[in-house]
Every structure is written in structure tokens, then in C-alpha cells.
């Protein structure tokens, strides 16, 4: 039987960690782009668009991420399209992230005084121009800290992709445990690596929060 040393376990976990990072980054960036589009719809004042985004947000916030992964992984396959675990995980995490980011950002936009909308309206700016030049520059200052804070949830959320067979950190841990029968060691290392990924993010979020509070 193949013997795994401590360093074998660690190096295999670290290789898989790359995929956790890649999946997190893609989910966060794509989720951010989709979230921004949804934000424009959510605060547009156009009723059908607002209803659509509200429903979207309710769905992705009100169901477990794991179910969403299953729906993308098995659901799309029903239409005869082959979905890789990689694709299903990317899609599910993107949509899930976008729902939460939209809701976080909507709160930041709502905190901008109504007078800013009225003043920019009366200067003949269109909705998109108001958002671009007046509202978002102010809202984004407030949004930085909770957005960075939420990225921690995205990193941890990627662990669920292991269940549909995507080999990232958690899946690698499971596989190594099956091969070595040293669950405590393996999962301790897995948890430690997640912590090393997440702690700087939540630390950064706290730092940013403090700095922005002092600024204004």
C-alpha cells in the first residue's frame, strides 16, 4: 500500500487549494458583475425589473447553496447538455454570490440621501449617469467593507462543490482521508488552510470598516 507522509498530504492539499482559490475568484468576480447588473435593475424604479431581481434574490438567499449546485449539476443535464462539475460549481456560485452582493450593495445605495438623486435628476442626468457619477462613487465607499467580508462566505461556499465531484480543497481532503485513514490530521490541515485563506479577508474587512468610519 502506498504510504503518505505528512508532506505528501500537505502538498496534495495545497495543490487542491489552488482550485478553491480559482473557483472563489471566478465566483466572486462573475458574481460581482452579475450583481452589479442586478443592482441597476433592483434600484431602477422600473417595477417589473425590481420584481424580477427581488424574486431572484429571494430564491438564491432562501435555498441552500448545495441545492443550487444540485440543480445546476443535474438540472441542466435534463436538457441533454453535459455539465461538468466545474461548470455547475461556477454557475451556481456565481448566481449565489450575485444575489448576496446585490442585496448588500442595494443597502449601500439606499443609504445615499434622496437629495443626491433629486439634485442629479434636476441637472438632467439619466439614471445610468446618476448611478455612474453620483450614487455609486458614494455607495462604493460604504460597500467595500461588507463586500470584502462577504468574500469569506464565497471561499467557504466553494467547499460544497466537493459534493458534486469538483476536486478542490475539501474534496482533496476527503480523498486523502480515504487513502490514509487519518481523518483528524487531514481535516485539521484542511480547516487550517481555509482559515489561512479567510482570516486575511475578514481582518481586511474589519480594517476597512474602521478606516471608513473615521473618514466620515
Amino acid at each position: 500500500m502506498l504510504q503518505f507522509s505528512f508532506w505528501d498530504i500537505l502538498s496534495n492539499l495545497l495543490i487542491a487549494t489552488q482550485w478553491t482559490i480559482v473557483l472563489s475568484l471566478i465566483a466572486f468576480v462573475c458574481g460581482g458583475v452579475v450583481g452589479l447588473i442586478l443592482l441597476f435593475m433592483r434600484v431602477s424604479g422600473v417595477t417589473p425589473l425590481e420584481w424580477f431581481t427581488k424574486g431572484y434574490i429571494e430564491f438564491f438567499q432562501g435555498t441552500p447553496l448545495l441545492m443550487q449546485l444540485f440543480l445546476f449539476f443535474f438540472g441542466i443535464a435534463l436538457f441533454g447538455v453535459e455539465v461538468s462539475p466545474w461548470m455547475a460549481a461556477t454557475l451556481a456560485l456565481t448566481f449565489w454570490t450575485s444575489a448576496f452582493l446585490t442585496e448588500i450593495w442595494r443597502g449601500c445605495v439606499d443609504s445615499i440621501p434622496k437629495g443626491q438623486w433629486e439634485a442629479s435628476s434636476s441637472l438632467a442626468l439619466t439614471y445610468i449617469e446618476q448611478m455612474r457619477y453620483v450614487i455609486l462613487p458614494q455607495a462604493s465607499r460604504i460597500a467595500v467593507a461588507p463586500t470584502v467580508g462577504f468574500s469569506v462566505q464565497v471561499v467557504k461556499g466553494t467547499a460544497l462543490a466537493s459534493i458534486i465531484g469538483f476536486v478542490e480543497l475539501t474534496k482533496a481532503g476527503t480523498m486523502l482521508n480515504n487513502a490514509t485513514f487519518r481523518p483528524f490530521l487531514v481535516y485539521s490541515l484542511v480547516a487550517l488552510i481555509y482559515f489561512c485563506l479567510c482570516y486575511p479577508l475578514s481582518w481586511g474587512a474589519k480594517k476597512l470598516e474602521g478606516r471608513l468610519n473615521v473618514a466620515r
Partner: peptide
């Protein structure tokens, strides 16, 4: 077009703080 020709000043100034 209308608002390009009709200006408005508000009670609370509403300057853009950024």
C-alpha cells in the same frame, strides 16, 4: 431636454460630497 433648461436649487443644497 426639459431639465437642461429648468434648473433647481434645493433646501438642503444637495451638493455631491465626493
Amino acid at each position: 431636454e426639459l431639465r437642461r433648461h429648468v434648473g433647481m436649487v434645493f433646501q438642503q443644497f444637495n451638493l455631491f460630497p465626493h
